[in-house]
């Protein structure tokens, strides 16, 4: 188990050129800094997780990467160009499934590709493949209201991954689910990702989720968020998330990162008491 250097942006494989570059980025809302001096590089096909206490600016960073906002300071680039919305090679998945209730499961899975203007045959084909991968083949004609919360999020995963994005941004995608459903979906996602090989950036406050799913974990300090540390996850690339709980490596990894994260969560508690402000 290796711990990368402070503020370190160290891709898994140094020979691969990074597909995402975040250089000295700071962003503020009004006069309050949300994130400060973020430096990060993500290699092709890498799965990284960004963890931190709530309010640490994780989602801010994702919004910047997604091109929803522009940073106050610093530069970001994805495949060598400034982030913007509407890229066909970028996928997004949020905590809320945002399924359109008037579309069937298939229609929802096709949505992104339809908006990209792909032809019907291609998108139906890809949507069906992805629905099969998430285990919803029998449901393509159902409406979202007929599905459970976990199934709805599976459709959202299919919608996100069907266009074969080279980069996928996940913003707390499993946080609205109950514990078991969450575990199943994390496993499903990781399995599909292993076969797709796209680059994934996962935002989460759930440390266990970050370690179980990612190859590298980036720990943020409490807001304004800075990178506190970066950890390389020492678990096999092909892993079953359902059996990780039994593995010692997973637990020691968890304890190590939690020791650092706990400081941030605890100090946040102190400010919340009003003593610091």
């Amino acid at each position: 188990m290796t711990t990368a250097s402070q503020n370190g942006a160290r891709p898994n494989d140094p020979s691969a050129s990074p597909v995402v570059r975040v250089h000295a980025v700071s962003h503020a809302y009004g006069r309050r800094w949300a994130i400060r001096d973020i430096n990060l590089e993500v290699a092709e096909s890498e799965f990284i997780a960004i963890v931190g206490p709530s309010g640490c600016g994780k989602t801010t960073l994702l919004n910047l990467l997604a091109g929803l906002e522009s940073p106050r300071r610093g530069t970001l680039d994805i495949f060598g160009s400034t982030p913007r919305t509407g890229r066909t090679d970028v996928g997004y998945l949020f905590a809320r499934d945002s399924l359109l209730p008037w579309r069937t499961v298939l229609g929802n899975a096709e949505l992104a590709m339809e908006m990209f203007g792909w032809d019907r045959a291609t998108r139906q084909d890809k949507a069906r493949q992805m629905l099969e991968a998430v285990g919803l083949s029998d449901y393509e004609r159902a409406y979202p209201a007929q599905l459970s919360q976990g199934m709805r999020q599976r459709v959202a995963i299919a919608r996100t991954l069907a266009p074969d994005p080279r980069i996928v941004f996940l913003d707390e995608p499993f946080s609205a689910l109950d514990a078991q459903t969450k575990l199943l979906l994390q496993d499903t996602f990781r399995r599909i990702w292993e076969s797709l090989g796209s680059t994934v950036i996962l935002i989460t406050h759930d440390l266990a989720e970050a370690i179980a799913m990612a190859d590298r974990v980036v720990l943020f300090t409490r807001g304004p968020g800075r990178i506190k540390n970066v950890y390389v996850v020492d678990l096999p690339a092909k892993r079953s998330l359902l059996s990780l709980q039994g593995e010692q490596a997973f637990h020691s990894m968890y304890e190590q990162i939690w020791a650092d994260l706990r400081d941030e969560v605890a100090s946040e508690g102190e400010t919340a008491d009003g003593s610091a402000k």
Binding site: A34, S54, G55, A95, Q146, S148, R152, D178
Partner: peptide, 20 residues
């Protein structure tokens, strides 16, 4: 309770301060 039809308000995460 678990069916999607009720839109499960209780299951949704609270709005996080860092969100937009």
């Amino acid at each position: 309770g678990q069916r999607g039809s009720n839109r499960s308000f209780g299951l949704r995460p609270r709005d996080r301060s860092e969100e937009f």
